[in-house]
Design a protein around this nucleic acid. Structure first.
Length: 330
DNA sequence: AAAATCACCAACCGCGCGGAA
DNA sequence: TTTCCGCGCGGTTGGTGATTT
């Protein structure tokens, strides 16, 4: 599938090649990046002797040549994760890709547009038929569990422009995930309904201290995600990371997490066994991973701990800090 | 068997953002 | 403060193989 090499290659007026990459170009680019690292795309074509523009070089590396890329079909788990993330983030493919190791934004975008979107539309059509034939007792019609775009200010601000398509109008999450939500599993003194939680209320919530667990990685690296703060416009002030304190534990987190994390927790982990939850300002950073911080296992802790997000080592996020053995250094 | 259509996906393009000058 | 530059992102294009008519 896709474009085969050679036949559609053209050369621009500047003497640059366009179109499919040849094996030779691939090997030159790969060798150069291996020797010099990623970045410096501006000088790369000249230094590497490639007749390609820097954008083309970067794209080829990021989408095809990177050694950590997963090839092949998407797994059902990946499908589900993409659906979840897209329902929250919209067409923010790079953010979605950042949560799915080994997959590129381009790959996910293509996959969504060519398959998942259609599958969901089909599914939605089937549900419409089902709903017409089913009385109101069906939980799908429970408005308290329905995810709306306006519940996620970040989604509204993420460039989802134009009139909403049927797929953009968020279907009930149960429809996508095949799960039911029971909000009464949560502490009702904290949250009753997602709709009641706004930024002001959230930040007014009491917070305490939380302990910081030891990093589990063998190389001692501490994983803290720098977060996609810009996507939380309107809540960005809540997303400053609590600085590491080298001298004492437990650490005190004074910054609040975002309302999104509470909503997400509520929606994704309604009757949570509380063992695979990972605290993050998005609340969804790594819930598919087996790596988690045991201390952060409840909604209470989420509310208390703030935006601390130890996440899986291999996720392509931005890391800051490292673990020295005595404390954290930024 | 040939033509038309569909499905897939690599690659391109234009724009916006952030940092530097 | 403004301008410039580099980078990265999302939308779109177009080539190819597969499938249908």
């Amino acid at each position: 599938m896709g474009r085969a090499p050679s036949s559609s290659r053209v050369t621009t007026g500047e003497g640059l090649n366009k179109g499919p990459w040849t094996a030779e170009e691939d090997s030159i680019l790969t060798a150069f990046v291996r020797a010099n690292g990623e970045g410096n795309w501006r000088i790369l074509p000249k230094r590497a002797g490639l007749k390609r523009c820097r954008k083309s070089c970067r794209l080829r590396w990021m989408n095809y040549l990177r050694p950590d890329l997963k090839r092949g079909n998407f797994s059902p788990d990946e499908d589900e994760l993409i659906i979840k993330l897209h329902s929250l983030l919209g067409n923010k493919w790079s953010l979605i890709a950042g949560r799915i190791p080994g997959r590129t934004d381009n790959e996910i975008k293509n996959y969504w547009n060519s398959r998942l979107k259609r599958n969901l539309q089909d599914m939605e059509g089937n549900q419409r038929q089902q709903l017409v034939a089913t009385p109101l007792s069906v939980s799908l019609l429970d408005s308290s569990t329905e995810i709306k775009v306006e519940d996620f200010p970040c989604s509204n601000q993420l460039g989802m422009s134009g009139p909403p398509s049927p797929i953009d109008e968020k279907p009930p999450m149960e429809a996508l995930l095949g799960t039911h939500h029971h909000s009464n599993d949560l502490d009702p003194s904290i949250i009753t309904k997602p709709q009641l939680l706004n930024s002001t209320d959230f930040h007014a919530m009491p917070r305490g201290e939380s302990t910081l667990s030891e990093p589990t990685s063998s190389d001692g690296t501490c994983f803290e995600e720098s977060c996609d703060h810009q996507s939380l416009e309107g809540y960005s002030s809540s997303c400053n990371w609590a600085p590491f304190d080298n001298t004492q534990k437990p650490l005190s987190f004074t910054q609040a997490s975002s309302p999104e994390s509470v909503l997400l927790f509520q929606q994704y982990f309604p009757s949570q066994p509380q063992d695979d939850f990972l605290c993050s300002d998005f609340g969804l950073t790594d819930f598919t991973s087996t790596n988690y911080i045991p201390e952060f296992t409840s909604l209470q802790n989420l509310l208390q701990c703030g935006p601390f997000s130890p996440i899986h080592k291999n996720l392509p996020a931005t890391w800051i800090g490292n673990y020295s053995g005595d404390g954290f250094q930024t």
